[in-house]
Write a protein that binds this DNA or RNA. Structure first.
Lengths: 202, 202
DNA sequence: CGGCGTTTTGAGAGAGCTCAACATCGGTGG
DNA sequence: CCACCGATGTTGAGCTCTCTCAAAACGCCG
């Protein structure tokens, strides 16, 4: 549900827009949380860095999507938010949000629903990350991210970005896509993948 | 935060207790959501089954912990809930919860905080699942689940259960624990692991 | 045209999975 | 008390698959 539909006017009025260059951090793990954000333009990724120094991507938010919902109830951010492209984000201050929830149960509930969606989203990602086989992981991604027709997936950004989001090396992803195409399972075109043998479930 | 501290009396009064045998399902993916649950006794795991038929464990709830929070805003459950041991759960009906949120912003906010914790929890699990090395994954688990002293981890259930929760085969877990013990990094005793060289971060 | 990042393909090595055998522990029943 | 039985715990060997390191096209932009 778009933010516009449930966020009280008082909160929207308190929002602050911020522009980010590609690679620039909106916030880092441990920063004091200022509020939650809506991506207006571009793409912003939520990530953590593991002990080996690898970036673990938790979520990539595009225009209209929100991030850092959970930070409203926490004094600090629990992961990094970094612009993957040049981006514009709108920050809704924490204090205004919490105040609004007290006065407007509808807003509080809508926010709860947003958080609930986050939870489901994260669960799907855990399922994906649990798959060790590159081929199955890609299949899982494609079936989860297939468009309304269930057959085509639009790719945002580069394949290298996608590899990072999938938690694979870019070599593994290239090879896997090539193999799937050779097997007649998918068809690749500019910024798009078409499933030729759509699978159920996933 | 314990459920007792924020759940309105009206909702608590509407709760229903249910006993489960080990292995019995509280609900399955796709079932119409009835409400959210608190584990009174025993352990209940949230899981999905992947295409290869393997169970992917999303969360294991023990006494006092809650599950299926997100289902309040969804018509159906998004994963399975299965008792790992004989267990008792308390079900708080969806309708009573939503009604309470309308009247009691405090409760709605506390619920939001609970969901936010879920989100953080899931993020940590994604980070864990992103680690391919069994040794590092076990280290990550130990550091995240270390007790207040930061040096000991109490194990619930069997090592086999733990292996499933970590997303490793039980053989890999046995070998890894044995190797860590040989390396003098941990000490194992009945249902407990002690870290001999506590690590920062993780 | 030159430079840089993405896309591809190759070869080798490490690590976990699978299959398999065996030890250990707890409970059951004779 | 002991034999039996199932599940957990443990170790071994081989295989597959991804990661890593390397190198070469390809595409885009100044």
């Amino acid at each position: 549900m778009p933010v516009k539909d449930w966020l009280p006017a008082a909160v929207r009025a308190a929002a602050i827009d911020r522009k980010l260059k590609a690679g620039e951090a909106l916030f880092r793990l441990g920063d004091r949380s200022a509020g939650f954000c809506e991506v207006i333009a571009g793409r912003v990724r939520m990530a953590r860095v593991d002990r080996a120094g690898h970036e673990v991507i938790l979520y990539v938010a595009g225009p209209g999507e929100t991030l850092a919902e959970a930070s409203l109830f926490s004094p600090a951010y629990h992961c990094d938010a970094i612009a993957s492209t040049d981006a514009t984000v709108r920050i809704y201050p924490k204090a205004a949000m919490l105040a609004a929830f007290d006065k407007d149960p509808k807003a509080a509930q809508a926010f709860g629903a947003t958080l609930a969606r986050q939870v489901m989203n994260l669960r799907t990602r855990i399922e994906q990350r649990n798959i060790r086989s590159a081929r199955e992981r890609v299949r899982h991604y494609l079936s989860v991210n297939a468009g309304a027709d269930g057959r085509s997936v639009d790719l945002q950004g580069t394949l290298k970005d996608l590899a990072a989001e999938l938690g694979l090396t870019h070599e593994a992803l290239y090879r896997t896509l090539a193999a799937l195409e050779r097997a007649g399972e998918i068809k690749r075109s500019r910024g798009k993948i078409t499933l030729l043998r759509p699978r159920k479930g996933g």
